[in-house]
């Protein structure tokens, strides 16, 4: 860990000012990922700007029926918030599938969006990694890549985004509210994270000096027919090999609307509008789910160890959509896959 300055932001404008003034500065809220990375010398901020006391902890209904979630709401508080449990249980479920109770208590909503990949090479400063050290090469490409991406990869990077919460947010068409030196703006969650391309060191489309102030959930919460299924190497406290957030609007057995987002397969939560369109108007049957899975996984590319993810994702998509259609969502408390 390097030595660094510490500053406590007095308000959002102060945080932006401090951040814009020092290109080596980082924001810190829960610190559940940043501190780890600092201990490993992967992140070496010159200054930590503590935003944990800023007044961004509210969950508020807006006049149009949306829900605005302050960036500093702890993951646990959000998962157990009555409005989330009732209107957006998909989000609650995805949050509870992630990390551990202790980490969820510390981690903020904004910080969850900012967490970095768990690629082992990214963490090990003794090995090349384009994300950590641009231009040094990707060790995972021809190395240990069992946990790596199969969609949206580039020649420079095959890392995955580790968040569960973001996968549900992507499925729910969440918006990210951002404040920065040139004012406020809002972007879709699905546009917030980037694919690696030739700049894998840039995870998000957040600009210099910008900070996440809130997440907004549109009114449609898919509270009847949803499921979040996370497949991993043990039943808790492991990152996803593949995860699926599925949400359906059913009219009888016919699909009125569908959302499917994948985690553990790409540098960002993965959605396919084509797959969702193909489901619309169809009966909620395994065949149609399977077809949607094919569309979602179009263009998947695999490396030496992660080939299994394509078939695993296909089966997980069908299972999750079936759970959603049957209104039997995956429990995150039971010690089994339903």
């Amino acid at each position: 860990m390097n030595n660094f300055q510490y500053a406590r932001a007095t308000d959002v404008a102060d945080a932006i000012r401090l951040l814009a003034a020092d290109p080596g500065a980082k924001l810190i809220a829960g610190g559940t990922n940043l501190i780890d990375l600092m201990k490993e010398n992967v992140e070496r901020p010159t200054r930590l700007i503590d935003i944990s006391r800023l007044p961004l902890r509210k969950v508020e209904e807006t006049p149009d029926g949306s829900l605005r979630i302050g960036a500093l709401v702890p993951n646990s508080d959000l998962a157990y918030h009555p409005l989330i449990e009732q209107r957006y249980p998909l989000l609650a479920s995805a949050i509870l599938a992630g990390a551990s109770a202790q980490l969820r208590n510390m981690a903020s909503v904004g910080g969850n969006l900012m967490q970095r990949t768990r690629c082992a090479y990214f963490y090990d400063t003794a090995t090349p990694c384009n994300k950590r050290h641009p231009g040094s090469g990707c060790s995972a490409m021809d190395g240990l890549n069992r946990n790596h991406a199969i969609l949206g990869t580039s020649a420079a990077c095959i890392a995955t985004n580790p968040s569960d919460m973001s996968v549900a947010l992507a499925a729910l068409d969440a918006l990210v509210h951002i404040a920065g030196p040139s004012g406020e703006r809002t972007i879709a969650l699905t546009d917030f994270h980037r694919l690696p391309g030739d700049k894998p060191h840039v995870d998000t489309n957040l600009g210099t000096g910008e900070i996440i102030t809130a997440i907004e959930l549109p009114p449609r919460g898919f509270a009847q027919n949803y499921s979040y299924l996370k497949i991993r190497d043990r039943m808790s406290y492991a990152f996803a090999l593949v995860s699926v957030a599925a949400a359906l609007e059913l009219e009888g057995n016919a699909i009125g609307g569908a959302r499917v987002a994948l985690g553990g397969v790409a540098h960002k939560p993965w959605r396919s509008l084509e797959a969702e369109a193909a489901l619309r108007g169809q009966a909620a049957t395994p065949d149609h789910f399977s077809h949607a899975a094919d569309l979602l996984l179009q263009g998947a590319t695999t490396r030496s160890h992660n080939g299994f993810k394509v078939e695993l994702a296909r089966r997980a998509i069908v299972r999750t959509l079936t759970q959603a259609a049957n209104a039997t969502p995956q429990s995150q408390a039971h010690k089994k896959i339903a």
Partner: peptide, 24 residues
């Protein structure tokens, strides 16, 4: 898990070196 190109252990922590948790 070791990457034999580097001779380095790549899961040298208890987040990635898995042991059973209560749910298992």
């Amino acid at each position: 898990v070791m990457d034999h190109r580097f001779g380095r252990i790549m899961n040298a922590n208890i987040a990635e070196y898995h042991i059973p948790v209560n749910a298992d």
